[in-house]
Write a protein that binds this DNA or RNA. Structure first.
Lengths: 197, 197
DNA sequence: CCTACCGATCGGTAGG
DNA sequence: CCTACCGATCGGTAGG
């Protein structure tokens, strides 16, 4: 776990505002002038706080990756617990990250491709490792007879896909609280739609 | 169902090449000069075939929408069939569209936000109608006692999310054929992961 | 389909 | 944090 130094308040504010714009309009279509205006600054002034537009994207993407790994690690700390329990906790942890900052999550999910190399490759490697962690947990569950699927990799991809759609429709002021959402997602993914399946 | 006139070959080629670029780099980050180069033309020459960059995006997004609706309509033609069967066929139809042109599907899923109004609003209305069709089918299944879920809207969103992740990893040369993918997705979504659930 | 070009806007910098 | 500016590149057009 690489530890990240806390950002100066102004820099954190730039990241937050940029994240909202990147989410709404996409990284490439967001100009530094728009960002500056949203912050009440001139464009050139941004560069006394940051080095480049991509630096912001880098911080958002890798910061979220760190949050996801931390959540998964906490959820699976007790390796002797039933795998279904660990999986449910991992799902809840993932949903908690997605809902606690859905703008940053959307950027993490969709804008990473605008990272230039080598950051882009490093990011994809992290994402692969995270998917692998879910895959291995599911495989463990199948081996223990707790879970059932014809294809572990397939199951992991589908599970994460269902979760990662959340930032597209989640609204903090909506009627479902994050924990309730996590619970329903876990239930539906574990039990399926079929009656008395 | 609005009928679309067939495109002249050159225009169709421009759309295909642009779609691949939009998918790989995003709409905003793809320049008309890149597109022209990929086609072996000069940038200005593109405009004897198309009116604007956005016109291409418009055609791709609305063309895919038409394909999705046509697939759903065919899958649910026989309204007296068991709802589980209709749902399975709708899933298969959706997957068939996604796999038959995964580049256009990825653009449909992620680049529509670069449409300007009123096209953007029209697109979102179509997407909502499509989600509603799945939601109503699931609701019908719950009413008939064939399906089970605490929240129909939630179930529809999760189902489509799982399917729509496909273009992110599907490769035509991969080991799973589209029909096999559709079958496994339907099976997993209907039955869930839990053993003897 | 090309050549030559337009005005607008881009990310970023120098100097204060 | 601002003013003033850089070179590069953008989508698109005129005229042939």
């Amino acid at each position: 776990m690489s530890t990240t130094a806390p950002l100066r308040p102004r820099k954190a504010q730039i990241d937050r505002t940029a994240t909202a714009l990147f989410r709404a309009r996409g990284f490439a279509a967001t100009s530094m002038r728009e960002l500056a205006t949203a912050l009440g600054l001139e464009a050139g002034s941004l560069y006394s706080h940051i080095k480049s537009k991509e630096e912001i994207l880098h911080r958002v993407c890798f910061g979220l990756a760190e949050s996801f790994f931390a959540g998964f690690a906490a959820a699976t700390l007790d390796a002797t617990a039933p795998v279904a329990t660990q999986l449910r906790q991992a799902i809840e942890a993932h949903v908690r990250v997605l809902t606690s900052d859905s703008a940053a999550s959307a950027v993490f999910l969709h804008e990473w491709r605008h990272l230039s190399e080598p950051a882009r490759g490093e990011f994809l490697a992290l994402r692969d490792r995270y998917e692998a962690a879910f895959r291995e947990l599911i495989a463990k569950g199948v081996a223990a007879g707790e879970l059932h699927t014809p294809d572990t990799a397939f199951a992991a991809l589908t599970l994460l896909a269902s979760l990662n759609w959340l930032p597209a429709w989640y609204r903090p002021e909506g009627k479902l609280a994050p924990d309730e959402i996590a619970h329903r997602l876990a239930e539906q993914l574990l039990s399926g739609l079929r009656h008395d399946g």
